[in-house]
Design a protein around this nucleic acid. Structure first.
Lengths: 235, 235
DNA sequence: GTATTTTCTTACCGCAGAGTAAATTAGCTG
DNA sequence: CAGCTAATTTACTCTGCGGTAAGAAAATAC
């Protein structure tokens, strides 16, 4: 009896008129209050709770039992929806990577110099990492816990994101908008600054996601130097 | 009982970072080939091997048994030198933080504008993280695995490093060498870019520690913009 | 209603890993 | 050499976790 006796603030099993059903609901465990409902909704509830715990205490420190407890179900119920713990992590990565990529896509439709694209990239990427828990999973979670096969899959997805910034940097160097630099190192510096957000950001902070994204884009492209004729508005 | 209790501070804090002789030897396990020898040397051998494993596969994935195996000893022998696994991690942090701080100290003796100091800080910090395995531990390892007491101790040490960069940024803003910006965010961006080095750097790469440090200092202070009259030499 | 399928629980297995007890070996001292 | 102490091993405990087997309970179908 690892899960101690239940009765965890038993919410009335009555299904009060409201549908409790969005994946982004504030209390994902409510998805399990009703038995026969949308399977995908419950999967999303698991993933969302898992992402939260993974970010809070890491993948390895998070046990399936704890995850189940948060959802007011028992451990084996998780295995009805997911093959194993690893699959949950892989799916978190999947959600996060699509979120980042779609953010990048919508930010980069406009055309400009390579420099402009780099700046737009940084802002979009940083904004997603701040505002999206799955995005933060991609930024923070170590994929070395994964099996070789899963790791390979996740890394090939991540590589696409990394290739994009390098491409824009080279474009900028070619069109003269970006100073010649070591593209590999520059992309690492940018990725590091953004991914690191996950270690210090806590939802509900003073700054909005947009503000953080903009400031990061400015810092990482314009630098810290006080420039002579510089009209940028800094916070 | 157990872990939570007092940590006996087996070594004096001021001695951290001072390696006695062979701690940097290529094969730390050799310290254990001879039975009666310098205790501190063996402690350092353990720490060095532990740091290596922690960086390679994370703290939680690294078992005491595996660590012992690498040193050609048995698990309980480790407990002759260290109270528990956590103490090993704490000592790795200690070594790394002193290494970083001494690097900063020696880089920042010269006085200049705030901007210059920020640049020197970044170069020194990055160089240490690249070249020093304990420094990389500070950058990479998650202190959330630690007990509250140990975590508090480690964080107060880390905070000193963080406070330094913020101080230099503010100095630069005051003296006009640094553009007004959100100091907190700027320090996070810089720390992130540097700490992230640990995730991609592997010893024996193409670039030397000094090269990486210089390029990072340039990237993070000068930015990516191609400037009109800019004499900096980029790779 | 009864049968069937979907969903979830109770009870368990096996294993790995942190840490310990007690015996044992190697070095040191006289 | 004997005897003491420092260093290390063998053998073990205990806990927690990933995962499974088998069946109960609810929803659905007929």
């Amino acid at each position: 009896m690892e899960t101690e006796s239940h009765s965890p603030k038993s919410h009335s099993p009555r299904k009060m008129g409201t549908f409790n059903g969005f994946a982004n609901a504030p209390e994902p465990w409510k998805a399990f209050q009703v038995r026969q409902r949308n399977v995908n909704e419950k999967k999303d509830a698991v993933l969302q709770t898992a992402a939260h715990l993974f970010l809070e205490q890491g993948y390895r420190r998070t046990s399936m039992g704890e995850l189940a407890k948060r959802l007011n179900i028992t451990k084996p119920a998780l295995y009805y929806y997911f093959k194993n713990k690893e699959q949950i992590l892989v799916d978190c990565y999947g959600h996060g990577i699509s979120a980042i990529e779609s953010g990048l896509d919508s930010a980069l439709v406009s055309h400009g110099t390579g420099f402009d694209k780099v700046k737009a990239y940084i802002e979009a990427y940083a904004t997603t990492v701040v505002s999206h828990e799955f995005g933060r999973c991609v930024a923070m979670l170590d994929d070395s816990s994964l099996s070789p096969a899963a790791r390979k899959e996740v890394r090939s997805l991540k590589r696409r994101i990394d290739a994009a910034i390098r491409h824009y940097l080279e474009e900028g160097i070619a069109d003269g908008s970006v100073a010649p630099c070591n593209v590999k190192l520059a992309s690492f510096a940018i990725a590091g600054a953004i991914n690191w957000i996950g270690t210090w950001y806590h939802p509900g902070g003073e700054l909005s996601a947009a503000e953080i994204g903009q400031e990061f884009a400015c810092l990482l492209t314009e630098g810290l130097h006080r420039l002579h004729t510089n009209a940028r508005s800094r916070v």
